Simulated scan of single mutants.
Amino acid sequence: MIYDLSHALSNETPVFPGDAQPEFTQIATVEKNGYRETRFNFHSHLGTHIDAPAHMLKNGKALDDLHVSYFQGKALIIKVDPNQQFIEPDLLLPFEKDLVNSAFVLFKTGWSKFWGDKKYFETFPTLSAAALQFLLQFDLRGVGFDTISADPVESTTYSNHYGIFNKGLIIIENLIFPEDLEATRGEFSCFPLPYKKADGSPVRAVLKV
C-alpha cells in the first residue's frame, strides 16, 4: 500500500507567517490555445517540503548536493499526543532499536487536521532539547513533522532546525498522515525539485507499507 503524505498545493495553501501566498496562474487553455499551462510563483518552502541544511547554515549542504538516493529510505513513524507541548525522550526510548535501522523519523501528531486554520500555527508539539539530543545519536537522513515547523512559530533561536542541520540532516515539514494509516514503519520517499543551490523544495512525500 502506498500512502500520499503530501498536502495539495493551491493559491490558498497556508504559508509560514510573513511569507507571500503562492500564485498558480492558468496562462493557457485548451479552448483558447490548444493546450493547458500553469505558471507557478511560490517560495521554496511551500506546502509539504524539505528544508536543506543550506536553509540556515552558510556552508550547509543544498538539496542538489545530496544524491537522489538520499531522499528515500526506511522510516519510523512515531505517534505523538497532540496535547503535549514537547516531544520528550521517554517517547523515543521504546523505539531505540528501530531508530538504529531507520533513515527517517516521522512524527505523527495529527496537527494537520488544523491545516488552513490559524490554530495550525499555534502550540503544536516540538522536540525538547533532550529529545533532539537523543535522536541525533542515530545515523538518520531526515526528521519529518506534520506541522508547520520543527520549532515553534514564535522561536527566534530555531534550536531544533540548527541542531538537525548541524548533523547534516534534512527536515520535512507539513506532512499529512491519512486517518487509516496505522503502520509505524515503511519505505519513505520525498524527492525534491532538482534546482541549483536548493535551500528547500516542495515534495511529493509518500510512504510504502
Rank of each mutant, 00 (worst) to 15 (best):
H7C: 04
P14I: 10
P14D: 10
P17N: 12
G18T: 09
P22C: 08
I27M: 10
I27V: 15
K32P: 00
K32F: 00
E37L: 13
E37Y: 05
S44K: 07
T48A: 05
H49L: 03
I50F: 13
A54P: 06
K58C: 05
K58L: 12
N59Q: 12
D65W: 02
D65Y: 01
L66A: 02
V68K: 12
F71E: 06
K74T: 13
I77K: 04
I78R: 06
Q85W: 03
F86E: 15
L93G: 00
E96V: 11
D98V: 00
V100S: 01
A103C: 09
A103L: 04
V105L: 09
V105Q: 08
V105A: 10
K108T: 00
S112I: 00
S112H: 14
F114K: 13
F114R: 10
D117N: 15
K119E: 13
F121V: 07
L127V: 05
L127E: 09
S128P: 08
A131I: 07
L136A: 10
R141C: 11
G144N: 09
I148C: 13
E154P: 00
E154T: 14
T157E: 15
N166F: 02
G168D: 07
L169G: 06
L169E: 05
I170M: 06
I172E: 05
I172P: 02
I172W: 04
L175E: 03
L175D: 03
I176Q: 15
F177S: 07
D180V: 00
A183C: 06
G186V: 04
E187F: 11
F188V: 04
C190Y: 02
P192A: 07
K196A: 14
G200P: 03
P202M: 01
